Simulated assay, not measured.
Amino acid sequence: MPDAKPLSNLPAPRPPWNKGRLTGQKLPLKPKDVWTIRVRLQILGSKRDLALFNLAIDSKLRGCDLVTLKAQDVCLGGRVRDRTTIVQRKTGRPVQFEITEQTRAALREWLSVLQPMDTSYLFTSRLHESAHLSTRQYARIVHRWVDSAGLDGMAYGTHSMRRTKAAQIYRKTGNLRAIQLLLGHTKLESTVRYLGIEVEDALAISEQVEL
């Protein structure tokens, strides 16, 4: 049997793939960050990105559902809807969301440029092999938005868009059932994990209620 190599001659272990990286849930944007990104997109005159950003915040959709939205999902009779419902790809369950006035205005501006048919995708891709933005393209766009606001790109991602409005609603109301419906979760436990609710959050809500 050959002699075992001394420990000093063994190759150094590889560093963990996530060393120095932020892992886990992506942070939601703060209201000031939302307005920073929105104003920058308005100044740049980026109609597609402004419509995409505003709708991502309002809809609270997963990226895979957001990029496959069609004109008919947000429009009815040439008018942008106040509310709409889509079926989620992940769960197969319908979820409803509101479209605020500023988002409707951004969509009208983008649709005037796009001039789609009802069956057309809302956010088209510039790549010939894809009819709509891919989730990878969407992720790159989100990172551009985050960078433009001076935020840490490793701490934010597409799920930041999904979590932003939900996190604000939770902070203001503490209504987990409402957020479960808005996010389209099948179980309340999923909503609790998704929002990262801790015991301190629960106690803070409890302390606001006097009996």
Rank of each mutant, 00 (worst) to 15 (best):
R126G: 00
R171N: 07
M161K: 08
R162P: 15
S125A: 01
T158D: 05
L107W: 04
Y170V: 00
A106C: 05
S120K: 04
Q168I: 11
R126Q: 03
T164C: 03
G150Q: 10
T173L: 03
F97I: 13
A139T: 11
A167V: 00
T119E: 11
M117H: 03
M154V: 09
R108C: 12
E98K: 09
S160V: 03
N175I: 00
A155N: 04
R144L: 09
T173K: 02
K172M: 11
Q168A: 13
V146D: 05
K165C: 10
A155R: 11
T135G: 04
R126N: 05
Y138M: 09
L111C: 09
T119C: 07
T124I: 13
G153A: 12
E129V: 14
T103S: 02
E129A: 09
Q102S: 08
A149D: 04
R163Y: 03
L127A: 12
I169Q: 04
Q102G: 03
V113M: 08
R140I: 02
T164H: 10
S134I: 00
A106R: 10
L151E: 13
R126K: 09
I99D: 07
I141R: 06
V113E: 13
Q115P: 03
E109Y: 05
G174Q: 14
H159S: 09
G174H: 11
